[in-house]
Amino acid sequence: MNFFNVFGINQPHFFIDLKDLKKTYIELQKQSHPDRFASASEHEQNVALLKSSLINDAFEVLSDDLKRAKYILECKEIPLSNATRNEFLIEQMELEESLEENNSDLQELKLLLDKTNTKFNENLNTLRNHFEAGNFDSISSMVNELIFLQRFTIKIKDRINKII
């Protein structure tokens, strides 16, 4: 059973309604959460624990665009692309340099964060287009770029957090 099946979706699908997903998540947890079985037999408690954990795990992955995209690749057994576009390699280097240079400048760090966020959202749009076109090679390399940008965002936020 894959994460999509948990939510009653037969095939891995990128375009799902997140509000519906959340609604179903709550319904499923209402039926399965260990709190509903706190006075039941040990066996039932164990089943509830496993089931509720699976639902949480599935929801965490499916409710996030990037994690969902990555998971779809896993389901389809498409490996993450190792090839990075030359353009993006250069962008990566520029971003890293810019972070090193402005290590303790709050203003600059915030600008860099905005820039990275914008870039992330642009790439997410491109990812959506690739999914619409069913272009899985491009999806794979775009997921790679998005993972880098997400990690980079966390790095900047950590720096900012240390300053304030």
């Binding site: 948990v6 009653g8 375009f15 309604d17 519906d20 179903t24 499923l28």
Partner: peptide, 12 residues
Amino acid sequence: ALSGKNINNIKI
């Protein structure tokens, strides 16, 4: 519970 009627309403 996992395939009950309430869970077929996720819009694709």
